[in-house]
Computed example of a mutant assay.
Amino acid sequence: MKAAVLKAFGSPLAVEHRPDPVLGTGEVIVDVVAAPILSYADEVFSGARNYPLPPPVVPGCGAIGRVRAVGPDATKLASGDWVFCDPTVRSRDDALMPDIVLQGWSARGEGGAKLQRYHLDGAFAEQVRVPTENAIPIGPIAETEAARWCAINTLLIPYGGLLAANLQAGETLLVSGATGNFGSATVAVALAMGAACIVTPGRNEAVLADLARRFGSRVRPVMLTGNEEVDRARMMEAAQGPIDCVLDILPPSVRTQVVRAAVMSVRPYGRVILMGGVGMLGGDDLALPYPWIMRNDITVRGKWMYPPEAVRMIVGLVRAGLLRLEEYAVTEFALSRVNEAIVHAAANGGPFRLTVLRPGGAMRDSVRKSP
């Protein structure tokens, strides 16, 4: 098969022939039709993000494809089924505290590194081998739709946070980081889940206006000033009532004061979900007042990724018409243009934009855009 290989950090990916993956018990081989390229992939491949991704490796985090072969213990999947290849691989020998690896992307801790040594190669290839439970059926689609279905790779991240928050239909949510790639996806998913109102603070006036245009009066934009007290007051005023839940998904570069202004707008007995990167680059950590948390009975929870059942549930939201993949503008690249695609993803990583690699199918050395 052909694959794009990262041979060393800081070097372009090399497209070359690699051995086809070998099927084992508890595994599935998938023909990759479309694989998303994350907007910060260039930072990972350059080594700037210092990800635990040992070269040589076929990278790629998630994919849409068709089942080529299944192991002897598969009872439902069959050759030809359309599936989402979930990159979140969990160890099977500790259900309480599983080690986790993002296949083709990163690992966490010593156990994750051990798991990664087996589930290393990702989806920037014509075929990928995944655990059986990670090949999740999405139902019949046309091959031309595969690239847009890659959007669920992004949508699943905030969906995991909203499930952890136990967001209920009719509640008010504040999305801290709403103008970013994952933040805008949070808005779309929360509306699909029935949120009555979503407060969307940010500094990018154009993106805030676009969110309101796309989703209507249930979205309440708030322009941030940089003053923590002023911004908190503006957020609470925009909600026109109690804020039931705050989900923070801001990147590592943001100051902690911005996060705290949003977090402390939540009502008494409210919930806060932390999914962003504050402090990960060595900056100040988030400091929340102990008395405020205790006396107001605030629930603060961290969340990384999403539970295994989330994929089937988000597919249900798409199939029901509640979550529109058509919101995403998609640019597709043939496998031979993978390095061009990585540059494009970095320059076009805003809300509702998707860069996709097409290892399989009819594309040949070309680029294709879908509005």
Rank of each mutant, 00 (worst) to 15 (best):
V5K: 06
H17F: 11
R18L: 14
D20N: 15
P21V: 14
L23T: 09
G24Q: 12
E27I: 12
D31C: 06
L38P: 00
S39I: 07
Y40S: 09
E43N: 13
E43C: 00
F45G: 01
F45Q: 04
A48P: 00
N50M: 08
P52M: 09
V57L: 06
G60A: 05
G62T: 02
A63T: 05
I64Y: 10
G65R: 04
R68H: 14
D73C: 02
A78E: 15
R90F: 10
R92C: 02
I100Q: 13
G109W: 08
G112Q: 11
K114L: 14
K114G: 03
L115T: 10
L120A: 15
L120Q: 15
G122Y: 11
A125Q: 12
V130D: 03
E133F: 01
A135Q: 04
P137A: 15
I138F: 12
T144L: 06
T144A: 15
A146W: 04
R148N: 05
C150S: 09
A151I: 09
A151Y: 01
A151R: 01
T154E: 02
L156F: 04
P158C: 03
G161C: 02
A164L: 01
A164N: 02
A165L: 02
N166F: 00
L173V: 03
L174I: 08
S176F: 03
G177R: 02
G180V: 04
F182Q: 12
F182C: 07
A185M: 05
M193Y: 06
G194Q: 06
G194F: 11
A196K: 15
I198H: 06
R203V: 00
R203L: 05
R214D: 06
S217L: 12
V219S: 02
P221C: 04
P221H: 07
L224W: 00
T225N: 02
T225D: 07
G226V: 05
N227Q: 13
A238E: 03
P242N: 14
I243N: 08
L247F: 11
S253H: 10
V254C: 03
R255L: 13
V259K: 03
G270Y: 08
R271M: 03
L274F: 06
L274I: 10
V278R: 10
G279T: 07
G279V: 10
G283S: 13
P289G: 13
I293V: 15
M294P: 00
R301W: 00
G302P: 01
W304S: 05
P307M: 00
P307K: 04
M313K: 13
I314M: 14
I314G: 04
V315E: 04
G316N: 10
V318I: 14
V318A: 12
A320Y: 00
G321Q: 12
L325Q: 09
L325T: 13
L325N: 10
Y328L: 05
V330A: 06
V330F: 05
F333P: 02
L335P: 03
V338A: 01
N339Q: 08
E340Q: 15
A346F: 08
P351L: 01
F352W: 14
R353S: 06
L354F: 02
T355Q: 11
L357G: 11
P359V: 07
K369L: 00
P371C: 05
P371N: 11
